[in-house]
Design a protein around this nucleic acid. Structure first.
Lengths: 213, 213
DNA sequence: GAATTAATTGAACGTTTGTTTTATTAATTA
DNA sequence: TAATTAATAAAACAAACGTTCAATTAATTC
């Protein structure tokens, strides 16, 4: 056999990416074989090598796509000139929205870092650090202006990120809780961690429907 | 060759467990081979099967040991009859201490769940749920008594656990931050998430040296 | 319609995998 | 000291792994 009827490189690559994210999220990178992935796509294993030179490059490509998308999504909604509390609420909302919508690729990007070579690992961590730096800056600005009350901005930023990323571990949108509900509740919590007073807190969180779309 | 001079079953099993936790934490369960593990212990692969019937049972045994230890450590320090804020501070401190002291087994228990069969996965999750239930009860008691101000106790408990477990991702004890420093800062943050007022918050956190040993 | 390019198959490669079996020696018990 | 048990090595198993290569067909270009 050879080229199949109706075959299309672009569609095949997209199908590979989608199946790979799902399989790797479910079973882990090392546990997924190229044959298993190919079978899921409906193709022979050898065909995968037309799109990715090897297994590790496939993983790396998935992670880069995820991180690039995350940063791009933030740059799109970022209210650069707003006050720190507004920016914090926006950061929280965007983070949760992006991760909830991409549970599987988030899992891959967070859990499979050890399967990357040192150079590729460094590249991904660089993107992650750049993204986290945005939050640290918000916290620092708020602490300086007196809007926030934070003892250790670096530590608080790490704690916040862990907290809001953790939403994908337990949250599934259902009838009880919508993404908007969860976002609002997490916004309240990041405000509390930032040391915003209760009245100010509510004013910022509830006024931020625009960041929960 | 056969039995080696000075060989001792107990010591060998302990060596296997220790090496397994380290290797699996570093490379992931699927990426670690029985031969690699055996080499680390200084033994042939076949010798491992004297202590564990197969690879999965080894993983399961490591996870059970971790979870049992976590629950036991909490039962030992738990101030059952204290007020909610004190109990929350104790829970936070014990959680951080246990996890920081066992970074590698924490990594294994949190990241390798998907390598377990459904029955074993259920067993481990049952232990985890039991442990998390303790925190939910503290939050519920505090909310009822008016000591805490919490909108959604289940969600807040999940967020707190994610936050305080996340400490192992970035924290390494060094000259800048000791475990006691980090514990105190995280206690402040869990108090804030619980909605304890600032003055009460400080009174509870700073008086809890006993829970930071 | 012929030539070229894109997409894929099927077979094969040497390694490595988890695991089992058998033999052998050290330590312990009688 | 003889018999027994504990602990290991060495070799072998079939199965699965990532990857390569040559052949073949579909789609596109000329």
């Amino acid at each position: 056999m050879a080229r199949t009827s109706g075959s299309d490189g672009e569609k095949t690559e997209a199908a590979i990416r989608e199946a790979a994210v799902l399989l790797i999220a479910r079973h882990g990178f090392e546990a997924v074989s190229m044959r298993q992935l190919a079978a899921e796509v409906g193709v022979q294993a050898a065909a995968l090598y037309r799109y990715f030179p090897n297994k590790e490059e496939l993983l790396y490509s998935l992670m880069r796509e995820h991180m690039d998308g995350l940063i791009a999504s933030w740059e799109k909604v970022r209210p650069s000139s707003a006050d720190p509390a507004t920016r914090l609420a926006a950061y929280t909302a965007n983070h949760i929205r992006y991760h909830v919508e991409r549970r599987h690729s988030t899992h891959v990007s967070n859990m499979e870092l050890r399967s990357l070579s040192p150079e590729k690992l460094t590249a991904i961590l660089k993107l992650r650090t750049a993204y986290e730096k945005e939050l640290r800056q918000i916290l620092r600005d708020g602490a300086e202006s007196g809007a926030f009350d934070i003892e250790d901005t670096a530590l608080t930023a790490m704690a916040m990120i862990q907290m809001i990323t953790g939403v994908i571990v337990w949250f599934r949108p259902d009838e009880r809780l919508s993404v908007a509900d969860v976002t609002r509740k997490y916004q309240t919590m990041t405000m509390r961690l930032a040391g915003v007073e209760q009245t100010e807190e509510a004013r910022h969180v509830y006024a931020l429907d625009e960041f929960r779309a």
